[in-house]
Design a protein around this nucleic acid. Sequence first.
DNA 1: AATAAACCTATTATAGAACTCGGAATAACG
DNA 2: CGTTATTCCGAGTTCTATAATAGGTTTATT
Lengths: 141, 141
Amino acid sequence: MLVSTKGRYALRVMVDLAEHQADGRIPLKEIAARQGVSEKYLENILSVLVRNDMLSGMRGKGGGYRLTRPAETYSVGDILRLTEGSLAPVSCLEGGKGGCERAAECTTIGMWQSLDRMIGEYVDGISIADLAKSPHGAACL
Amino acid sequence: MLVSTKGRYALRVMVDLAEHQADGRIPLKEIAARQGVSEKYLENILSVLVRNDMLSGMRGKGGGYRLTRPAETYSVGDILRLTEGSLAPVSCLEGGKGGCERAAECTTIGMWQSLDRMIGEYVDGISIADLAKSPHGAACL
DNA sequence: AATAAACCTATTATAGAACTCGGAATAACG
DNA sequence: CGTTATTCCGAGTTCTATAATAGGTTTATT
């Protein structure tokens, strides 16, 4: 599994917010109900997005979340990397700890690098606006 | 992480065997030493490959493993799917248990399906012969 | 008989995933 | 000012998969 519920939920929430951008601030309760996900769990995920200025959250009555920028400027890749930490298909490609010291003689690392680049280019080429406007449940070009 | 050590090691072993195809049967001990991996762990992984006729193993003195077919006929995808179970980037795409009942209304599933197809086509387009002949540690076109 | 190998089944340790819980701070409204 | 609705914060829990180990059995060669 490349992407866990964290990244998946985060993406869905961002698209949800993109679709309801016009309604001003949206409370977590509403998003969670619409997406069919536990409020408490979503809370954890959204806090990451807020801390990184992808979302703005406001407390108190009438509060809620909203995007801080136009929907076209959020790439799927940015959201996933933030919530997942890494999108590398294998741990050898993760900077630091996962790094393999056999890389120089490895027969497969080149293939993994190419795959990694490919995945990166794909997710960076799609914005949440793209996802919001395409019909739900449909394939993506 | 899309691919765990299981799939990674399996691939490396298959390429190793492709490179030493001419030497007849290769004992696990030798492969493990060359690849810097625990013998016992590799044993588990190779047993899967043998059970699925990707490798032939022979016991006793002089025994060892070898490919059952020409190296060009093994795709990276086949090996990974066998050892990993699935290459789906998200659990929603896994048949059965992981299947999501919200798929029809999901804003992101189309994107995941496209990514899945893309990854599949990539790994199916590379054979272990390709990996064996390209310089080690180098990128893959 | 000795040796070298694959084969088989089970166990364990660790980490991460996926939540859950309880409360504190904050903002609006009457 | 008090009530209510919300985000924010930090721990705690449960479950599962990964990554390995361990020990023994069978089979083939010399």
